[in-house]
Amino acid sequence: MKKTWWKILTVILLFYVVIWGLLGPVPRQPILNETIRNVYFHVPMWFSMMTLMVTSLVYSIKYLRKGRINDDTYALGFASVAIVLGIIGFVTGSAWGNFTWGDPLPRDPKLIAVEVGMLIYSAYFVLRGSFEDEQKKARLAAVYNIFAFATFMPLVWILPRLTDSLHPGNGGNPAFGKYDMDNAMKIVFYAANIGWILMGVWVSSLVIRIRLVQNQLNEKN
């Protein structure tokens, strides 16, 4: 039963978020109305994705320093779950945008940034697919992962702040927390962030363990 406490915490937090997020009181805002509840599900996806991308980056650096093939498996696992979270975040975002902005895919710098991010990580998988040799594949993928991450970050964090954006907190729009969320919402929001990040880590740990077992089986054959 060692190291299971955080999994139990994840389950409790997410049950709390789903139930209280859908039933709890929310301030009534013009245009937003009840869709404000999506903030518990859409925003944490990005936090979770970012966390996993940074973890993937750390394991890529670790691989380049030490050369252990397991570190590469870790980097791959975190990156593949990160891309899934990115897609979920994209879908929840466009559903939300459909009802508030009147357009599921408005021309918004954050959306463009995320589309590019998905392209970068897809390219990462294509790159991995084009090599046979394990060490060579791992090394080149690690180099690309680090390089792509460094160009992805300014795209997400700097560019949307320079241009006009529909998202709160960008292009002169006030951040969400300032006006729209009351204290009761903030508690659920923080719980949602922690819960979804832990969920992301949990799923990636499962993916990684399956891959490690597969690697071992491949070695035996």
Partner: peptide, 13 residues
């Protein structure tokens, strides 16, 4: 591969 890898990286620039 060059096209696939480079376009997303070059887009911010």
């Amino acid at each position: 591969l060059m096209a696939v890898l480079s376009f997303p990286v070059i887009l911010p620039i």
